[in-house]
Nucleic acid binder design. Structure first.
Length: 427
RNA sequence: GGAGGGGUGGUAGAGUGGUCGAUUGCGCCGGUCUUGAAAACCGGAGAGCCCGCAAGGGUUCCGUGGGUUCGAAUCCCACCCCCUCCGCCA
């Protein structure tokens, strides 16, 4: 959520910043300002009348105590009440409309964010390692079938397309990777947390998935909208960041650093037929996620640090990858600045996104009323960040494809051997 | 699922129609005292919004939402949540 005061103070700057994203979000700015104006006028008028009512009501109490007749001024208050009711309704309506508009406004891209309209404009920031020298690389589907690691037909039988079953060494490899990632990130200084996968609507609003992207989310339909309706978390970012929704941290509690493994659930509406080979785009997938809540002074540097943490696991596995920076037209709704980490998949001949590391400035904190009390005793909004550390399926793909050997076996990277219990997968 | 109890400020816990946004204990912050600390004493301290350059003023908030009333933490209704016991169950 953007700061309404900041919008009031410099609407042109806000509009220009939003225009860099492309689309027509910026047109909402004038509507928000109009709502804000109406709201404040109504609230001010209402509060003046409420002050009068309060004063008179106290008089009534006092006069009645003295046994005097108060019927005349009671009538006066009744008239005040009618006006208050009207103004209150007007203020509430304007406030509700303003909130809706603000919830639909994305974050402002950070000035350092490269300008561009789409992913073609995303600069490569750095590369690590080199592409393995493979004569005729197989893709992960072929390798997984060959070693009976992943069963697509089982997934379809149980849940339909977009779901797979890992079996035997395939399941063991998935579990080994999860444990490896959790241990690695915990040693990078993150507290491991294990959270519910079903979350309330307000959590989804807090991190910015709702109200804009409801079509992409799975939800339970038990109960009417609002009370028992829960959403399946599309990323651990939602339950983990919202652990601190509506709280006031003390400054020494910062930074908060958490890591969580969770399955993630996404409808992937509208992406049928896209990246649908193998396990690259799934309705359910595993992910290890990093979340940080930090002092606003440190947001920028922590984004670099957190991205480094995400990269560290790829380095430990010896997988070639590159880091790209998303341009203004490609960053996510809530993000101010984002790095994507793409790991090399030789069987596909392309890089796959395994991590997206974002700095949300105070956008999410505002939405979820997450604050901290600074040294002067003022309540302020901290910055939130998160990044995958990493997503499992594409890491799995990259591992199979980069570590395949001429005889078709899969070499297990040394760092993973203690988790997997063997140094090779061969049929 | 059944029965009962309860949701008040960081916390514990008062408050059953009118100077109550709220007594008090603990905890916290500042000060006095002390070589320092503790103790004791004094003082401070909730959140949001509105008006204001500011100083400051106003208003709302006692689980949530309605209602009664000139006036609601206090009365009425609905809902949510928590606790205890019973039942069921991984």
């Amino acid at each position: 959520m953007l700061d309404i005061r900041a919008i009031r103070d410099n609407p042109t700057a806000v509009q220009q910043s939003l225009q860099a994203r492309g689309g027509d979000h910026w047109l909402l700015v004038d509507q928000v300002l109009a709502c804000d104006e109406r709201r404040r006028l109504a609230e001010t008028a209402k509060q003046d009348l409420q002050a009068a009512r309060k004063r008179i009501s106290k008089d009534i109490g006092r006069l009645k105590g003295q046994g005097q007749d108060t019927s005349a001024i009671e009538t006066e208050v009744r008239a005040l009440n009618e006006q208050i009711t009207t103004l209150d309704a007007a203020a509430d309506a304007a406030a509700a409309e303003q909130t809706t508009l603000l919830l639909n406004l994305p974050n402002l891209p950070h000035p350092a964010c490269p300008l561009g309209s789409d992913e073609a404009a995303n600069p490569v920031v750095r590369e690590w390692g080199t592409k393995p020298d493979l004569a005729a690389p197989k893709d992960h589907v072929e390798l997984a079938l060959q070693h009976r690691l992943i069963h697509w037909d089982d997934g379809i039988r149980i849940a339909g397309s977009g779901f797979v079953v890992y079996r035997g060494q395939g399941a063991r490899l998935e579990r080994a990777l999860i444990n490896f990632l959790l241990d690695s990130q915990a040693s990078n200084g993150y507290e491991e947390v294990n959270v519910p996968l079903l979350v309330k609507r307000e959590c989804m609003e807090g991190t910015g998935q709702l109200p804009k992207f409801e079509d992409d989310m799975y939800g339970t339909d038990a109960g009417e909208e609002g009370v028992n309706h829960l959403f399946l978390a599309p990323t651990a970012e939602v339950p983990v960041t919202n652990l601190y929704r509506d709280t006031i941290l003390s400054e020494p509690e910062l930074p908060v650093r958490m890591v969580a493994y969770t399955p993630c659930f996404r409808r992937e509406a509208g992406s049928a037929g896209r990246d649908n080979k193998g396990i690259i785009r799934m309705h359910q997938f595993d992910k290890v996620e990093l979340v940080q809540i930090v002092h606003p002074d440190h947001g920028a540097e922590v984004l670099e640090q957190l991205t480094g943490h995400a990269e560290s696991v790829l380095q430990r596995l010896g997988l070639h990858y590159r880091v790209i920076e998303l341009c203004t037209g490609d960053i996510g709704f809530s993000s101010a600045k984002t790095y994507d980490i793409e790991v090399w998949a030789p069987g596909h001949g392309k890089y796959l996104e395994v991590s997206s590391c974002s700095w949300f400035s105070d956008y999410q904190a505002r939405r979820m009323k997450l604050r901290f009390k600074d040294a002067e005793g003022n309540n302020r909004f901290p910055h939130t960040l998160n990044g995958s550390g990493t997503a499992l399926p594409r890491l799995y793909v990259a591992l199979l494809e980069q570590c395949q050997q001429a005889d078709g076996s899969i070499r297990i990277p040394p760092a993973l051997v203690p988790y997997f219990g063997a140094d090779v997968i061969s049929s």
